[in-house]
Simulated assay, not measured.
Amino acid sequence: MVDTGAVARNTRGSGSSVSGLKSADVSIAIVCPADTAALADYEIFCSTALHGQAQHPLWLHAWITATNADALIATIRHEGRTKLMVAMEVIKSGPFRVARFMGGAHANGNFVATDPSGQNFVTASVLTALREVVAQARPDIDLICLERQLPDLLGMPNPFAQLATVQSANIALATDMSGGMDAMLARMNGKRKRKKLRYTLNKFSEAGGHRWLEASSAADVETLLSSFFEMKALRFRQNGIPDPFSPMEVQSFFQTLFTQALQQKPAPFVLHGLEVGGRIVGVNGYSITQNSFVCEFCAIDDSEPSLSPGFYLDFVAMEKACEQGKAIYDFSVGDDDYKRTWCDVQTQPFDLLLPLTVKGRLAYAGRLARTRGISAVKSNTRFWTLLKTLRKKVSGYTS
């Protein structure tokens, strides 16, 4: 890793350099993770650091490969020891250039790679230093926007939590599995859920039988993801929502991510699917952490509502989470009725916004207002329900 004051390699422009900044006890350097050496350093640090799954080295490799991301890593050192490594990509957002977590809206439950030893040392002065060194290295960046960050991970507070700019627009919901499946069901109307499971299995039998699937080869990954993209696209069209999975580079990213994850034991990312009557009717994508199953995305074919493929996939995944000793089944960000039937853990993620330029202050104000506005709308159940209904009507979708 480049040390303070050194000049790093930059593969994205001739003559451009990356700068370092030093204070009495903090030094920061910026490198381009498209550089193999920088990514290798990040991976070494992550082998002992705590980090969110969207900050996993495999996630970074896959995203950069699929999108050719203009990517940076900010390194913060304290008392001669690397304390944080913040991986970001630079994107164009209207008239602004914004540095964000790699993956954009697909990156949830974010937690920068952090040395788990010692107390948090991130203060306002450290954020000032981070601002200055990014601005020095990349004067074209207007705003650092690190969204949907977890307030803590495995009992460790997020180093940026005390300096959060605003609460994220969406909460995250999860289920406490620490006492096992039976204990969870005892709290969550288990008698009704087991009855629904029996009913669902009977419906599967009537429809020609079922198979639960877990991708174990590149071909499996391609099959399940193809079905997922098709089902998800239909659902977004029905609800009048732009499809964030439609870009080919995003689809290539997930194909690479889940295929490469098969080479690691245990796999940090896995795909589950459900086949009924020879047809795939549900796909869930998970990240697997030290203590949790996190459902990063899901899609179902609901043309036959009585099949309940989503319920079945969640139920089986919870059983497997318990078998593996996981304490949490995490539905990730977003508040939906089906999640509420399971969840007894609610987390409020936060966003950190750091303007670097005059334009960046405009972008900061705009994003802050937007986040607060969305939060206000979603907190009004009646208005939010009406808005979703109107959005579906405006979409003009007909089956």
Rank of each mutant, 00 (worst) to 15 (best):
residue 285 G to V: 01
residue 124 A to H: 07
residue 38 A to S: 14
residue 176 D to R: 11
residue 171 I to R: 02
residue 148 R to D: 06
residue 24 A to G: 15
residue 295 C to D: 10
residue 236 F to A: 02
residue 160 F to E: 04
residue 332 S to L: 08
residue 214 E to C: 07
residue 245 F to S: 04
residue 75 T to D: 14
residue 199 Y to I: 05
residue 267 A to H: 07
residue 392 K to P: 00
residue 387 L to C: 09
residue 106 H to V: 07
residue 398 T to K: 12
residue 62 A to R: 00
residue 207 A to R: 05
residue 73 I to E: 11
residue 313 L to E: 04
residue 333 V to N: 06
residue 22 K to M: 09
residue 49 A to S: 13
residue 7 V to N: 07
residue 241 I to E: 07
residue 118 G to D: 11
residue 242 P to C: 04
residue 41 D to A: 15
residue 38 A to K: 07
residue 170 N to D: 15
residue 87 A to V: 11
residue 316 V to K: 07
residue 36 T to Y: 08
residue 310 G to D: 05
residue 77 R to W: 14
residue 202 N to C: 00
residue 74 A to Q: 06
residue 186 A to N: 10
residue 278 G to H: 01
residue 199 Y to S: 15
residue 114 T to S: 12
residue 144 I to N: 05
residue 18 V to R: 08
residue 393 K to M: 11
residue 103 G to A: 09
residue 276 V to H: 05
residue 321 A to M: 10
residue 360 G to D: 09
residue 213 L to A: 01
residue 239 N to I: 01
residue 37 A to D: 12
residue 251 Q to H: 04
residue 151 P to L: 13
residue 57 P to S: 08
residue 101 F to I: 11
residue 106 H to Q: 11
residue 49 A to M: 09
residue 167 Q to G: 03
residue 152 D to N: 14
residue 177 M to K: 12
residue 337 D to W: 01
residue 33 P to I: 06
residue 399 S to T: 10
residue 162 Q to V: 07
residue 387 L to G: 10
residue 383 F to N: 05
residue 209 G to W: 04
residue 56 H to F: 03
residue 348 Q to G: 05
residue 230 E to Q: 12
residue 369 A to S: 14
residue 95 P to E: 12
residue 311 F to L: 12
